[in-house]
């Protein structure tokens, strides 16, 4: 539960800071903000869209985006998804309800679709010469209307919640969201990684697969013969749910350059035992 509680604390406190903290601490919203009246922070995905829309980006925004980029290159791009983005609380609740109701299947979406939507969002910015995707982007609309007020919060929250419950498991965050796809690209070179250090202790309970919102990322590091125990897949959100849920303490947070295992591998579980 440790990481889950920390995550919720992080998500909620970021929102509360934006809403209630005096403006000299932080002001703006997740699209762009100013920390302590000096440090600019800007969403690099937004600036990329702005660039494609044909705007020459000002220095402040570039510096802000650079700071954000460096931060996520250290902690992992999709840390944005699991530790910052308020939509995550909705989709987590939806995943929980979906499990409780025992709803299965219904998902014909590809996990690659988000990259196509990411490319599409840049293309429409180029064609229309505006930040077109930001007119409908649920992620930015949701956090903005939480922070600045507005009815959008309610509708977007409900829509994504029911989409995730009834239409597709992890439908929004795991298949459609181009913001997550963008930050996922940073994961390809980011430093902080989850590692299946004690994978020799794994007793195939599949709890981690049940809880992981991007379960395709676990298989190879955990079960692959002689594979790298680091979860290097771009879509791992570093949420730490697998660490929380594993009885055998198989997983831990580590970094990209550590590939050592706790024990030399003696027992290798055959691949065919795996039913994710």
């Amino acid at each position: 539960m440790k990481w889950l509680i920390l995550r919720r604390f992080s998500q909620i406190s970021i929102l509360l800071l934006f809403i209630f903290a005096p403006f000299w601490i932080i002001k703006g919203n997740l699209s762009s903000s100013v920390l302590l009246n000096t440090v600019p922070l800007t969403d690099p995905y937004l600036l990329l869209q702005s660039f494609f829309a044909g705007h020459t980006i000002a220095t402040t925004a570039l510096i802000g985006a650079l700071i954000v980029l460096i931060f996520y290159l250290i902690v992992g791009g999709r840390v944005y998804c699991s530790w910052v983005c308020p939509i995550n609380m909705i989709t987590d609740a939806a995943a929980w309800l979906r499990n409780r109701l025992g709803i299965k299947g219904g998902n014909t979406l590809s996990r690659q679709l988000r990259y196509w939507i990411l490319a599409m969002s840049l293309l429409v910015a180029f064609v229309t010469g505006t930040l077109a995707w930001e007119l409908v982007n649920p992620v930015s609309m949701f956090q903005r209307s939480l922070i600045f007020g507005g009815i959008a919060t309610l509708f977007i929250g409900i829509a994504i919640f029911f989409f995730d419950v009834f239409v597709a498991r992890n439908g929004w965050c795991g298949h459609l969201c181009p913001v997550g796809a963008f930050y996922g690209l940073l994961n390809k070179i980011s430093i902080l990684k989850v590692k299946a250090t004690n994978r020799s202790k794994c007793d195939d309970c599949l709890d981690c697969f049940a809880v992981c919102p991007e379960l395709q990322v676990i298989k190879l590091p955990l079960k692959g013969k002689d594979s790298n125990p680091l979860i290097l897949d771009a879509n791992c959100t570093n949420c730490g749910r697998c660490i929380d849920v594993c009885d055998k303490q198989v997983f831990e947070f580590s970094h990209r350059f550590s590939s050592s295992l706790s024990q030399p591998e003696k027992i290798i579980h055959p691949q065919e035992d795996l039913h994710p």
């Binding site: 699209s31 903000s33 800007t42 937004l46 702005s50 010469g129 505006t130 930040l131 600045f148």
Partner: peptide, 15 residues
């Protein structure tokens, strides 16, 4: 049209 390419909707001007 240029304004809508440049504004990231952060609300700092509002604040």
């Amino acid at each position: 049209p240029a304004f809508q390419a440049a504004c990231v909707r952060c609300g700092l001007c509002v604040r």
